[in-house]
């Protein structure tokens, strides 16, 4: 028996590729067959169409389903609305996330840094649904924000904000601004971590050199620190942007009656039974992301991951 094991071991030594294949085969076949197989099958439906009369899928190649995305005003609006929201959320997360990342990377002792680290990790990994739910409590008519504005006698201001088109909505809990807040809250940790990583890599001597050469703190920030943090921001934006593009639960719960891509996919495959159109809608975030990632790569996003 022992000899047998040693023989196998010798065999592995002489045939390193065999061991490599033995390792790779299970995960590769799992992902290749189960995952990639079903993914490609589904996405290929975007080249088919739904027969309007029978409600059955017509399996002949056509580009009409994809054209439908852009020809129909309603569909095109969905695309624009989603990309617009994703960009706004990305911008918001960068704005809120940067000070935390900067403070954490450059002004903390190791112990405080660990505290920050866990403080960012906990929300990142804790339940998505619970965190969305918490905002239902916050944004509710009788919730903390309305209470706060009421205490300050500023309810009129809140109403004014809510009445602005493309920002507001009937109430905080059904509004664009509400959606923006929830999305920003949910994806914020994904923005903080890469920015922190890229800032941590900026040696302090570089900052000192800039100060030494006569730049003010403000100039140093804009000329040295911010450009070097850019790869981190780009990396973080990949997450915030793509996660917002594909999400359908937050618009469903907080959003107005106007659809987003995720909801469109959901409805088309579900109640409407229009798998081809659902597949065509699914292609959009994938293609947008491919271009987005290419741009981000040029900004050095992948070195910051």
């Amino acid at each position: 028996m022992i000899n047998f094991i040693v023989n196998i071991s010798d065999y592995f030594y002489r045939n390193k590729n065999f061991l490599f294949l033995l390792f790779l085969l299970p995960p590769l076949s799992w992902l290749g067959i189960i995952y990639l197989g079903s993914l490609l099958t589904f996405l290929s439906h975007s080249f088919f169409s739904l027969d309007g009369f029978t409600g059955k899928i017509n399996y002949t190649f056509t580009l009409n389903t994809i054209f439908e995305l852009f020809n129909s005003r309603a569909n095109f609006d969905i695309l624009i609305r989603t990309v617009g929201l994703a960009l706004t959320v990305t911008f918001g997360s960068a704005l809120i996330g940067f000070p935390i990342a900067y403070y954490m990377a450059k002004f903390t002792s190791p112990k405080v840094k660990i505290f920050f680290y866990i403080a960012i990790m906990l929300p990142l990994w804790s339940s998505y649904l619970v965190r969305v739910y918490s905002w239902k409590l916050i944004l509710a008519k009788e919730g903390i924000i309305n209470w706060f504005f009421g205490k300050l006698h500023l309810t009129w201001l809140l109403d004014k904000i809510l009445s602005i088109p493309y920002i507001g909505g009937p109430s905080l809990s059904i509004s664009y601004i509400g959606m923006f807040l929830v999305f920003t809250y949910i994806w914020l940790p994904f923005m903080i971590l890469p920015i922190h990583a890229s800032l941590e890599r900026v040696p302090n001597s570089l900052i000192n050199a800039s100060l030494d050469l006569g730049a003010s703190k403000r100039q140093t920030f804009y000329k040295v620190i911010l450009p070097l943090a850019l790869p981190g921001i780009a990396a973080g934006s990949i997450f915030t942007f793509s996660l917002t593009l594909g999400d359908y639960i937050i618009p469903y719960i907080i959003g107005t009656s106007k659809f987003f891509i995720g909801q469109a996919v959901y409805t088309h495959q579900g109640t409407a039974g229009n798998i081809p159109l659902a597949a065509a809608f699914s292609l959009v975030p994938i293609i947008v992301m491919i271009f987005y990632i290419k741009t981000a790569k040029k900004l050095g996003a992948f070195d910051a991951l």
Partner: peptide, 17 residues
């Protein structure tokens, strides 16, 4: 990919498979 693509795409793909 499974974590990078929106969950809904993974979900529907598996469902139809």
């Amino acid at each position: 990919l499974p974590i990078a693509l929106p969950g809904i795409i993974t979900g529907i793909s598996l469902r139809s498979a």
